[in-house]
Write a protein that binds this DNA or RNA. Structure first.
Lengths: 294, 294
DNA sequence: CTGTTAGCGCGTTCAC
DNA sequence: GTGAACGCGCTAACAG
C-alpha cells in the first residue's frame, strides 16, 4: 500500500507543514505554557512542531547543531539571548525567525516588561503589610534577572523602604542559568538561615518558587501563614497553596508568535519586524493569602 | 551565504535526524516526564523531535491528518489506544512504530501495570489507618481506567473492606478523557459533598489530583491532615505538600522507547517486537504524611 | 482524462 | 584533486 513521504513531498511542493521551535528545557512549566499557545495555533492550521531542545548547558552549541542540520522553514527562538553573531546567522538562513523573550531589530519579537512585573509583585507584598521581603535570584547576571532585581528595588524604594543587597539571594546549583528548582530550594534555605524574620519572598522564576516550597516544607513552614511566596512566570496559581505569581499569559504569546511566523511563511511581502511588549500581570490566589498584620 | 536545506538533505541521504512523537496534550505533567526522557536520548544522538499534538478531542482525526501529511521515519505513539484498523495503517507506513502506554503484537511497546500500581497505592492508605477511602476516576471506561479501578477494588477486598461503588467518583467535564484537572476538581467537590467523612482519596491521574487540591483548598481542608491524596502518574511529589503519587518512571520509559525507535531506524534487521512492562512504584513524600490514627 | 516528465536541493558517484 | 550527472520520492506542469 502506498503512503506518502513527508520529506519528498515537502521538497516538491515547498510546503512544509512544520515550524521549528528552539527553547531551553521545553518541559519546564514556563515554556510549557508557551508551547500550549503555539500548539493551539498549529493545531488549528494543521502544522506540526519540530522541537529543538537547547538543554540547560551548551545552548549555543545545541542551536548551532540544529541549524547546521538544516533550516526548516521558520524558526521560533524562545528564551535565548541574541547577539550580533547569532543575528547574522539567523538572517543568513533566509527563512523567517520570530523571537520570544528577547528582541532584536531585524526580527519579530515578543517580550515582556520584567521590571514592571517584579515591581508590581513586590509592591503588592508591601501593601499587604510584609515588613521583611527577600528575593530569590539566579546566580547569573542575565538581562532578565537584572530587570527583575531592578523591579524589586523600585518597589522598595518607592515605598520608602531601605533596599538591602543581602536580602537578594542566589542559589548555588546554577542549573538552567540559576532559574531551576534546585536553585530556588537552595536559595530559600539560605534565606531561612540568614533572614529568619522573613515574611515574604519574591522568586525570579516559577520553578525557583516550586523549589522554595520544598525548602519551606522541610523547615516546617506554612504558606502563606509563615511566609508568602510570589513567583515570576507562569505558575498556575491554583495548583499551589498560597503561591501567587506574576506572569504574562505565555499561552497568548505562544499563539501570537506562532501565528506571526506562519504569516511570514505564507506571504513574505508583509510589513517590517514587529516588536510586541506584553504587560505582566500579578495573579493572587486569594487576596487574603498575602495579608499580613504582624 | 550558503545554508543547507534540511528537507532536501534528508531526502538525499535518507537520514532524517528526526523522530515523530504523537501524543495527547504534550504539556500535561505525565506526558511531560515522558518527553523529558525522549529528549534526553535525542539530545545525546543529535536528533530532533517532531511533535504531533493529538489534542483532547478528535484524536483519531488528528493522528490521521498527521500521518497523511506523510510519515517521518519512525513514530512514537504515546497514550493512544490501538485497534486493528490503526495497526494496519501503521504497518502500512513501512516505518517503525513504538507504542507507549498501549500494546499490540506487531509493535514494540512499553506499558505498565496499572492494576498493580493502583492496588499498591490503596493498600498503602489502608495500612496507614485510613477508614474511608474514595477514588477519583475518569468518566470514560478506558482500559487504563478500568485497570486502576480493579486495583482499588483488589486492595479493598484483600484488606477485608467492603467495596462500595459510590466511593468511586467521576468528574463531569470529561476533558482529556476525564483525566483533566477540571475533572479532578469536580470529582473532589462531589466527594466532599457525598462523603464528608473521607480521609483519603486516590486519584486516577496526576492532573486530577492537582485539581482535587484546588477543591480541597477552596473547602478549607488541609493536606494531608484532613485528607491524604495519592495520584496516579508522574507528579513530582516534592512539589505538593502531602501529595503522594504512584508512577512508573516515565522518563526512563521515554528514554528507552526513543532508543528502541532509533535502533529500529538504524538496523531494520533486529529482533521481533518487544513488550516491556514497567512495574509502577508508590512514592510517598514523607511516611508520616499518610499516617492516620482516628 | 490519463500518462509522462521535469525539477525541488541535496549527497553521492563516476568520469575526468 | 575538481566537476558534472544522477537519483532520493514526490508534485506540478505538460503532452497525448
Amino acid at each position: 500500500m502506498y503512503h506518502p513521504n513527508r520529506t519528498a513531498r515537502s521538497l516538491a511542493q515547498q510546503e512544509f507543514h512544520t515550524i521549528a521551535v528552539a527553547l531551553p528545557s521545553f518541559t519546564a512549566p514556563f515554556q510549557n505554557e508557551l508551547l500550549k499557545g503555539i500548539r493551539a495555533y498549529l493545531r488549528e492550521n494543521d502544522q506540526d512542531l519540530l522541537i529543538c531542545d537547547l538543554g540547560s548547558s551548551n545552548q549555543e552549541k545545541a542551536l548551532h547543531k540544529f541549524l547546521s542540520r538544516g533550516a526548516v522553514r521558520g524558526l521560533l527562538l524562545c528564551g535565548f539571548p541574541i547577539d550580533d553573531k547569532l543575528a547574522g546567522e539567523l538572517s543568513a538562513l533566509q527563512s523567517p525567525t520570530v523571537l520570544v523573550g528577547y528582541t532584536w531589530p531585524a526580527f519579530d519579537s515578543y517580550i515582556w516588561d520584567d521590571e514592571a512585573g517584579a515591581e508590581s509583585a513586590v509592591t503588592h507584598l508591601i501593601e499587604n503589610g510584609h515588613h521583611k521581603i527577600c528575593m530569590i535570584r539566579s546566580g547569573v547576571d542575565s538581562e532578565i534577572q537584572l530587570s527583575r532585581i531592578q523591579g524589586f528595588r523600585n518597589a522598595m524604594e518607592r515605598a520608602g523602604r531601605k533596599f538591602e543587597e543581602s536580602s537578594i539571594v542566589a542559589g548555588k546549583p546554577l542549573y538552567h542559568s540559576g532559574f531551576s528548582e534546585e536553585d530556588g530550594y537552595d536559595a530559600m534555605k539560605t534565606i531561612l538561615e540568614l533572614h529568619p524574620d522573613t515574611t515574604a519572598v519574591f522568586a525570579s522564576s516559577d520553578v525557583q518558587a516550586i523549589g522554595a516550597i520544598s525548602a519551606l516544607n522541610e523547615a516546617g513552614k506554612q504558606m502563606p501563614t509563615d511566609i508568602a511566596l510570589v513567583g515570576y512566570d507562569d505558575i498556575k496559581t491554583s495548583r499551589f497553596v498560597g503561591l501567587s505569581s506574576v506572569h504574562q499569559s505565555m499561552q497568548k504569546i505562544g499563539y501570537a508568535a506562532a501565528k506571526k511566523l506562519c504569516e511570514r511563511l505564507d506571504g513574505p511581502s508583509s510589513d517590517g519586524p514587529e516588536q510586541v511588549v506584553i504587560e505582566p500581570k500579578l495573579e493572587v490566589r486569594a487576596s487574603s493569602d498575602l495579608k499580613r498584620s504582624n
